[in-house]
Amino acid sequence: MLPPEFLFSRAFSEDPYAAYDEMRASGPVHPIDFPPGTTAFLVVDHEHGRAALNDPRLSKDSAHSSVPVNAELFFGGTMLAMDPPDHTRLRGLVAKAFTGRRVERLRPRVQEITDRLLDGVAARGEADLIEEFAVPLPIQVICELLGVPASDRPRFREWTAVLTVPALTAQARERRREAARAFNGYLVEVIAERRAHPEDDLISGLITARDGDAALTEAELLGGIALLLIAGHETTVNLIGNGVFALLRAPDQLRLLRERPELLPSAIEELLRYDGPVERASQRIALEDMEIAGTPIPKGAWVHVSLGAANRDPAVFEDPARLDVTRAPKRHVAFGHGLHFCLGAPLARLEGQIAIGSLLRRFPDLALALLATEYRHHRTGSIVRGLVSLPVRV
């Protein structure tokens, strides 16, 4: 059985794909002690992983766990921890406010923010692209979309940094509870303000969204807004960071993308497949005794699907460890699959295309400032995967 320390090790954080290749060679499903004390399994191939992502026998609600867990630690109160019909109703209401048209209207503003940030990078000649570009861009975009004032945005980075990692110690759990209390308290005030004075923003849209007589409850509003804020920027930070890092380590692909900018949409999909921002899908729990690839999964057991492993499965993607910006990998699962497919995928794609495309056009001599082996990924055991920093020369 894989110990929980497996997910926190330096070797795994720097190259989880080697570990997944080794596991996949001996089978698609492996027992793992995570969360500690539960019966849990890790799925590391594309066929069974993709199927598990949309299997109605696997619940998103941690209340079904055979071992009691704190639901707040596993996205309790948000769509990520709901099953139909609650999930269907809630997703439908959020989708009415978070429309493709609203996202597309952001394109000029995303480009404007991108250009301003790159002006700052150009003035210095070198930068940490995580802190100076990949972090501020999506934070500003999602906060403007929701209507969060600029003065409040620095706090969101602090809160999400705590709320997106597992809390396995008493100290970490208390720190997470404090962040959740502060986050929820802030959102309660914002919602009250928007109820009294609606604006043309997503929070106002969520408050007024209706499906017949149905509307979001106060708790659902809190959970929905919190999820959009966290998922709306934390994952995009890592899409940009991981994507740029991958291109700078594959100069032939970087050159090809510069020569053929029309490849950018397919290149973003390939970067999502190659080293995506979400390494594992959020939890699923068996509602009944079942099997995955012949492995018995008892009722109440946790099932973790590795999106990163599925996207490197050689049974689906030829030469999966090679970055190929012409690949257009339509079957990748970087945004999940099925009922819980990422609602923010259009926004992430828009930001990724503008950010990476603009960076490559602006800086033809963009290069890593350190040896590739000197860069480090976060070792938090989180479902997200990203670099601690990305120093570059421009």
Rank of each mutant, 00 (worst) to 15 (best):
R280I: 09
E199V: 02
E270L: 02
I240F: 09
H304F: 12
L228I: 15
G241M: 12
I191W: 01
A196P: 07
L264E: 04
A309S: 13
A167V: 10
A293M: 03
T169F: 09
G212I: 01
A226V: 03
E270Q: 08
A192K: 13
A246W: 11
L239F: 04
L287S: 08
A250T: 15
L263M: 02
M290P: 09
L168F: 05
A250V: 03
P166S: 11
S306C: 08
E288A: 11
E262H: 02
A192N: 15
A170F: 11
G241R: 12
T217L: 07
L222W: 04
T208A: 13
E279T: 12
L239R: 01
R210D: 06
P166A: 09
H233E: 04
D213Q: 09
I230D: 01
M290H: 06
K299Y: 07
H233Q: 11
V303L: 12
E220D: 12
S306T: 08
E174F: 10
T295A: 12
L229Q: 09
N184F: 14
Q283F: 15
P261Q: 00
L229P: 07
W302F: 15
T208F: 10
A180M: 15
G205P: 06
V244A: 04
L168C: 08
R195C: 01
A250H: 15
A215N: 06
P265A: 02
T164M: 10
P251D: 04
A286V: 03
P261S: 00
A215V: 15
L163P: 07
L307K: 07
I203F: 03
A182D: 15
A310S: 09
L307H: 11
I191S: 02
Y186A: 01
L202G: 02
A209V: 04
R210F: 12
L222V: 06
T235Q: 07
E193N: 13
A167C: 12
P265H: 08
P261C: 00
Q253R: 03
P198V: 00
L222M: 07
N238H: 14
A219P: 08
R173C: 07
G185E: 06
H304L: 14
S306D: 05
L254T: 00
E270G: 01
A281P: 05
H233F: 15
E218V: 06
H197A: 15
I191C: 00
V190C: 04
I225S: 02
G243M: 06
E291S: 12
A180P: 10
L307E: 06
L247E: 06
P296A: 12
I285D: 04
A309H: 05
L206C: 02
A231Y: 13
D211G: 08
R173K: 14
P277S: 10
